[in-house]
């Protein structure tokens, strides 16, 4: 059983997840460096699948490389680049290497990336992909053909609590849960009120669905403005932006903001941990985890 599953299903401990940096060369030495940096703090780390519609080292091979370096992967699969056959073979490839944690998501559109002329696939959607993963756990491909023995997955998904239509986000999260998702990593959210309404709404109906909101460590207003303007589905309220932009020490203000959002998120019903994205690449990750009351693992 994966550590993530063990903790989420059989304990009340909080879990902390992160994003493994995309690999664009650098070999296993770079994987080893990043794994060593993240391992002390995180229970499992996302092996991303061409994030923001940019080509990188593949999701499965990244997940395998992480595992070789002692880091438990959550293998992401997005629906943008692969049809249903390729998604099932990703899952089987992961299973072959003992990868259990899977996160299935729609994916940014190709127009968000650096090859916007590419054909978008979206043969199936994320909810269908979740259901197909669940089917495979019963020992069958989508076609009904046998898989023996059945692979063992721990299925996760993603939802954006802060994007319209807000009420529908709760229903959609529950639909993903019914399809087979046991945990949800939530998109970055700068609207604590929206996150709170979402978590309360989900926890009321599906208290066993584990919610993991995301927070981001940023250096200042420039990065905050970039996210607001360029990242699909993320809105930064004007007051929040002004608070960081007008501060004399922007790095400190951005850090304090993230800490506040993290503490608020952790206080919400259904929330079992945090997903931490680090865009600062300085020593603040260690301080942040310390400030949340965590101690590094050996």
């Amino acid at each position: 059983m994966s550590l993530l599953r063990e903790k989420l299903e059989n304990s009340s401990d909080r879990v902390f997840t992160a994003e493994f940096p995309s690999i664009d060369g650098g070999g296993m030495a770079s994987v080893a460096r990043d794994a060593a940096r993240l391992a002390p703090w995180f229970d499992a780390v996302n092996a991303t699948d061409n994030p923001a519609a940019h080509a990188h080292t593949s999701n499965t091979t990244t997940a395998i490389a992480m595992q070789m370096h002692g880091l438990e992967p959550i293998m992401q699969i997005v629906c943008r680049d692969k049809n249903r056959l390729a998604i099932q073979s990703d899952l089987m490839g992961g299973a072959l290497h003992g990868i259990e944690n899977i996160s299935l998501l729609t994916g940014d559109d190709v127009t968000a990336g650096d090859e916007p002329e590419a054909r978008r696939v979206f043969d199936i959607d994320s909810t269908q992909a979740i259901n197909i993963t669940r089917i495979m756990m019963t020992g069958k491909y989508l076609s009904g053909r046998k898989i023996n023995p059945a692979p063992n997955f721990y299925i996760g998904a993603v939802e954006n609590a802060a994007a319209p239509p807000f009420d529908y986000r709760i229903e959609r999260a529950l639909k993903k849960h019914r399809a087979g998702a046991s945990f949800l990593q939530l998109q970055i959210c700068y609207h604590p009120d929206r996150l709170e309404a979402f978590c309360k709404g989900v926890a009321k109906i599906a208290p066993d669905l584990k919610l993991i909101p995301t927070v981001v460590l940023l250096k200042g207003s420039k990065a905050l403005g970039f996210m607001n303007e360029k990242v699909a589905g993320i809105d930064v309220p004007k007051d929040t932006f002004a608070r960081v932009a007008s501060a004399t020490d922007q790095a400190k203000e951005a850090y304090d903001l993230t800490l506040e959002l993290a503490q608020h998120a952790l206080s919400l019903p259904g929330v079992r941990g945090l997903h931490v994205t680090d865009f600062r690449h300085d020593d603040s990750l260690n301080n942040f985890m310390n400030d949340l009351g965590l101690k590094p693992r050996n």
């Binding site: 943008r80 968000a112 978008r120 959607d125 954006n160 994007a163 529908y168 589905g233």
Partner: peptide, 16 residues
């Protein structure tokens, strides 16, 4: 554009 049959993606803009 993503031909999603089971609900919206996470990229919906603030204005819907």
């Amino acid at each position: 554009p993503k031909t999603l049959r089971n609900g919206p993606c996470g990229g919906v803009r603030e204005n819907g």
